[in-house]
Write a protein that binds this DNA or RNA. Structure first.
Length: 418
DNA sequence: TCTGGGGTCCTAGGACCC
DNA sequence: TCTGGGGTCCTAGGACCC
């Protein structure tokens, strides 16, 4: 058996932990640069605010209904996620972190009342972290996902749903929209609609060969999982990232090459830090900057460059220098840049790297020591305390509606008055 | 005025080999 | 008129996820 624990309206729930006055009221959290609604309370969903809706398009609804709006506060959400995960980890033999607000649990070998287990786990998460969590238990990951969605739909399930008997699964799948199934996206759904496949049960009832022919291996895996055959691996260990990106939209378009370099240097810095965090180095760095794609009557441009390192690196100084060099090369004075970013590719473990014959090993060792100190200082005194001279101290993004870093920044800690 | 960010896997087709 | 057969590796683009 697998469990899927999924935090309800996660970013909104994080805000509500420190703002209980917002319970029962419409709340949304915006994406970077206050662009889109990426989390909505049930009340906000009921007002018709869609996932990913551009903020400027829903301002009327927001104003008329007194919706509380937050800029994204990833420091808070990451910390709350860590807390929920620690409760989950202690409640099962193995956990696979799937996203910031979801984790699978492997319940293999446990001989217990799973329905009670699911409900108790949900209650424990809420009691210990303040975050409402939906726990679905089923024989495959895909079915566990469906079970957890049922919890959100039916409050009487009290946050936990165990689904295993064939007749129960059939009953659920017959009512479950196929486009809500994990792995069925927009394109596949369009095809399915033309075939009159509407529910998860319809999909599970197609012939295996037809599914294989039309939807390939991913579609076949989903089909098997719906039919109770586990095909999606449970991954206990945390895998290193194969690519690491840092990209942002800017609050105002950038037309000055120095200003763009400062921003890209910051993205490069964040990328290098993430590489070192997972003990990796990269052979390639992709850098891009682009104009505002929504402005139809403006000159559009996407500038790209890829840098190759002969000896793979995670050094901030080396990665920043390369990224800035790329920007200076492709920068066009006749373009207004709205978005830019940096991606590390061809990532390998640092321990696997063979030294190059003509590489300056001494300089490399020295730089490694420098990075270690830099990481230690920034860990204690905050990101960006020590940084490259060219690197901006903050992203040029809108975030005026951001809540305090209640749980990670001492000066923002809530104060209990006696 | 205003439209997010960060990932993974699969597949078809090209390049290349003998 | 007519041009083999079998294999590997790499990559870009598509589809999907949260």
């Amino acid at each position: 058996m697998f469990a899927l624990a999924d935090c309800n309206n996660f970013f909104v729930s994080c805000e509500r932990v420190f703002r209980p006055d917002l319970n029962g009221k419409p709340v949304i959290v915006l994406s970077n640069n206050d662009g889109c609604a990426v989390a909505r309370s049930n009340e906000a969903k009921a007002l018709g605010i869609k996932m990913g809706a551009p903020f400027f398009k829903i301002k009327d609804i927001v104003r008329k209904n007194g919706v509380t709006v937050f800029s994204g506060n990833m420091a808070l959400y990451s910390d709350m996620s860590r807390r929920v995960k620690s409760v989950l980890r202690a409640s099962a033999p193995a956990m696979e972190v799937y996203s910031i607000d979801e984790a699978f649990l492997n319940l293999e070998g446990m001989d217990i009342d799973f329905d009670r287990y699911a409900k108790e786990l949900s209650a424990r998460c809420f009691r210990w972290t303040g975050i409402p969590v939906s726990v679905g238990v089923a024989p495959t990951k895909t079915l566990a996902k469906i079970a957890s969605k049922l919890c959100k739909q039916y409050p009487k399930l009290k946050g936990g749903c165990y689904m295993h008997r064939l007749q129960d699964i059939e009953k659920v799948l017959r009512k479950f929209p196929v486009d809500d199934v994990w792995g069925i996206g927009r394109k596949t759904f369009a095809k399915l609609q033309s075939m009159n496949v509407v529910t998860a049960w319809d999909y599970a009832s197609l012939s295996q060969s037809q599914v294989n022919r039309l939807f390939g291996l991913p579609g076949l895996n989903t089909w098997k999982e719906l039919n109770g055959i586990p095909t999606i691996e449970f991954e206990d260990a945390v895998r290193s990232k194969q690519s690491i990106s840092n990209t942002r939209s800017f609050s105002k378009e950038i037309t000055d090459v120095e200003a763009l370099c400062e921003q890209v240097a910051l993205f490069a810095t964040m990328t290098a830090e993430k590489l070192r965090q997972q003990g990796s180095v990269c052979y390639e760095l992709a850098v891009f900057a682009m104009t505002n794609r929504f402005k139809e009557y403006v000159r559009q441009s996407i500038s790209n460059d890829i840098v190759f390192f002969r000896t793979p690196t995670s050094s901030t100084s080396e990665i920043v220098a390369s990224a800035v060099k790329s920007v200076r090369q492709f920068f066009r004075a006749d373009c207004a840049y709205k978005r830019a970013g940096v991606t590390a590719l061809k990532i390998v473990p640092e321990s696997s790297v063979m030294p190059m014959l003509f590489d300056d090993a001494d300089a490399r060792e020295k730089d490694k020591g420098l990075m270690k100190v830099l990481d230690q200082v920034n860990a204690v005194y905050g990101r960006g305390t020590i940084r490259m001279g060219i690197c901006s101290d903050k992203v040029s993004s809108n975030s005026a509606l951001r809540s305090p870093q209640y749980s990670t920044l001492p000066s923002d800690f809530p104060v209990v008055k006696g």
